[in-house]
Design a binder for these strands. Structure first.
Lengths: 213, 213
DNA sequence: TCATGTGAAAGGCTTCACAGCT
DNA sequence: AGCTGTGAAGCCTTTCACATGA
């Protein structure tokens, strides 16, 4: 019986992490796994695994463990990764094009339905995936027409807020922001930051600390 | 006077976030900024900004605010982004090559010194940046010889642990893992995960929640 | 008066420890 | 006996509120 207490955000991210080894275990025909083994594969505490899952119901069998297939399906249902999602891309640089081309990406049900750029020299060009790059001025209209649910922003930083605005005008539900600036958005639009340079600077800080010892 | 209490990890990540608007404000010649304004630009609480900075010393002037140039330099010094870092890349797919080519990347002092792949068809090929792809069997030796400090892993998941092992054999200090599996590493090697699919699944979960209302 | 720096309070997340099933 | 599910404890992070200083 699912509980309705508020789910911690870290829990959601870990569910995604748990699903990776489960996919591999399913292929290798292992029927059951304990919270301790799964935790080991994911680098977390076993109690954490059990608590995370318990937010959504009782998936395990006491004295036995979790049925791999059942648990994986349950997680996919919770995360809503068991269906396809329509995306678009704003800003077609190196990072943007590499995302569109990713094999893994399409396999997981993320369908890129449109690509935009404000650079007139890029508009009209065809991408490897078959999409034609449209002008940024078409964003709102196209997002609405094609029912696009998620927008990826990989523009230069100073264009990011404008891109976010146009995506929201088109009624987008979520934005994944790869730029270095923070985007303001309405409450009904969920924004997630994926600024890689923050990861790098965190890494570099810790390296420096290790060196000092 | 810097304190020596333990610094929270979230604080380090926010320092990186604070530095972005500061760079822009410096260019626009604004001399001083308050914690409230900076917090607004970064989407955090003003007290958070002050507390984060206070871990490292007293950078502000009461009744006035923070000197933009001084603060930015201080943050760069803390994060150790005021010098160059030697990187290498293991796994030359779409994502890997786009990272190497990123303009922003080199500008921030990250120098890609070597690129590896286990696919014999890719070994020997030249990348746009001028580097020649080496065999994965050269990883340890090259990392040690060139003094490479950071390794990026963008291989398929099942090759990631092996790549991490070879990087550590070469004495690498930090690994940025873009794959979907968790990597085990020695304590003296700092590992950061940058699995994009976790971001996507988090986004999709929240979209589903918004839809339900 | 204004904005920083900082103890104290509040809030949130993780871990423990054991009750409860199989 | 073995492993899950969970209240309670512990730890970490954020926010408040005000003393402090320009």
């Amino acid at each position: 019986m699912p509980k309705e207490s508020k789910i911690p955000n870290p829990t959601i991210k870990r569910l995604a992490v748990y699903s990776r080894p489960l996919e591999i275990l399913l292929e290798s025909k292992l029927p059951v796994i304990s919270s301790e083994k799964l935790a080991g594969l994911c680098g977390v505490n076993p109690a954490q695994v059990r608590k995370d899952l318990a937010y959504f119901g009782e998936f395990g069998i006491r004295g036995v463990g979790y049925d791999v297939r059942h648990l994986l399906n349950a997680i996919k249902g919770i995360l809503a990764t068991d269906r396809e999602w329509a995306l678009c891309l704003v800003g077609i640089g190196h990072l943007g094009s590499s995302l569109v081309q990713s094999e893994n990406f399409k396999k997981r049900g993320y369908i890129v339905k449109a690509a935009f750029d404000s650079d007139a020299r890029k508009v009209g060009k065809k991408l490897a995936c078959g999409l034609t790059i449209q002008s940024a001025s078409c964003i709102s209209q196209t997002v609405r027409k094609l029912g696009i649910e998620i927008g990826l922003i990989t523009t230069p930083p100073h264009e990011a807020q404008r891109a976010a605005h146009l995506l929201q005008e088109g009624g987008i539900g979520a934005i994944l922001n790869f730029t270095t600036i923070q985007i303001r958005a309405r409450k009904k639009c969920f924004v997630e930051n994926a600024d890689l340079s923050v990861k790098f600077e965190n890494l570099v800080y810790h390296l420096e600390q290790l060196d000092k010892i």
